[in-house]
């Protein structure tokens, strides 16, 4: 990397971090308001309310006003304390980081799978135009993007059990030689059917075509230089990082379902449980971490953009 590129990156990163902090503030505020408006007074102790099954009167009155609750939460956040889960009593930060790593593994893994499927197809059809093979592959991407993800998960599990005699349970205490396979399966399912393959193919293809047609590439081609080398940055790297940044929220959503099907101890499953328990410290923690993941994706995109095209930093 050229030295001159470093300075814009540092300014960019600091600026982006500032924006990210502002956004996280907004995200937490919105979630807090939703929780405040929801029935079942989330700010009373959840335990008291679970207990209502036995004795409904036990719901404690909500202490203080909602905005003072929010400020208390913010103050604790600055101290690095996200509170304790109302359901299990465990510290939220620790819990969310623990499951967040599993979700990150699932998310990144499935992004890779998506790209592994989409990129060759996109490159093929961008370079060759719409040949029958390219067309078939494109149609294939439409098909997989339109499958309900849990149903595909069931199909995979069914085949795994009945064809290979393997029961895909990752994270077991009795790990066997097939554990890698158990870890692969959910990643594969989410990667195939998070509904983004066809969009990725389409976008990448269009971007590459556009770049191939640009003057500098045409010139390069006329000179006999490698088109690929010249178009790599603009036609490939930038679109891919853009896709990654834009699709992280979708994949996190798909993870909620896949984690349930494959018994994956991740953030989505925890969010599902927490939303029903109104476990508000945990919900806040999860949305915060999820939003951080999303912001990280967009930061990556900006950084790549700056490296490839330093002029963009001045925009």
């Amino acid at each position: 990397m050229k030295l001159s590129a470093v300075r814009p990156i540092t300014t960019l990163v600091t600026r982006e971090l500032g924006i990210a902090a502002l956004l996280l503030l907004g995200v937490s505020f919105v979630v807090f308001v939703i929780l405040y408006l929801s029935p079942g007074s989330p700010f009373a102790s959840i335990v008291a309310r679970i207990e209502m099954a036995a004795e409904p009167g036990a719901a404690a009155s909500a202490p203080a006003t909602w905005y003072s609750q929010y400020f208390i939460w913010l103050k604790n956040l600055l101290k690095g304390n996200l509170g304790n889960s109302l359901r299990t009593g465990l510290p939220v930060l620790q819990e969310v980081v623990r499951v967040g790593i599993n979700t990150m593994y699932l998310t990144i893994g499935s992004l890779l799978v998506t790209l592994l499927i989409a990129v060759p197809i996109a490159v093929f059809s961008a370079r060759r135009g719409m040949t029958p093979t390219g067309w078939l592959m494109t149609v294939f991407t439409y098909v997989v993007s339109a499958l309900p993800v849990f149903w595909l998960g069931y199909i995979f599990i069914y085949i795994s059990i009945h064809r290979f005699g393997l029961f895909p349970l990752a994270f077991g205490s009795n790990a066997g030689p097939w554990n890698w396979f158990y870890f692969m399966l959910p990643v594969l399912v989410l990667g195939i059917s998070n509904g983004t393959v066809s969009e990725v193919v389409r976008y990448l293809r269009e971007e590459m075509k556009r770049v191939f047609d640009e003057e500098y590439i045409v010139t390069a081609r006329a000179k006999g230089a490698s088109v690929w080398k010249h178009s790599f940055k603009e036609g490939f790297l930038i679109p891919i990082t853009e896709i990654i940044a834009a699709k992280i929220p979708f994949i996190l959503g798909g993870a909620v379902v896949v984690e349930q099907v494959f018994n994956w101890p991740g953030m989505g499953r925890m969010a599902w449980q927490a939303a029903q328990d109104r476990d508000y410290p945990l919900i806040m923690g999860i949305t915060l971490v999820a939003a951080i993941l999303v912001r990280m994706g967009s930061l990556l995109q900006r950084v790549v953009l700056i490296i490839v095209n330093p002029r963009a930093s001045r925009e």
């Binding site: 929780l35 929220p249 996190l252 798909g254 909620v256 969010a271 939303a275 949305t287 939003a291 967009s298």
Partner: peptide, 12 residues
Amino acid sequence: NSFPRLVLILLM
């Protein structure tokens, strides 16, 4: 854009 969509819907 920062909200994971399904999580937000689940919550709502």
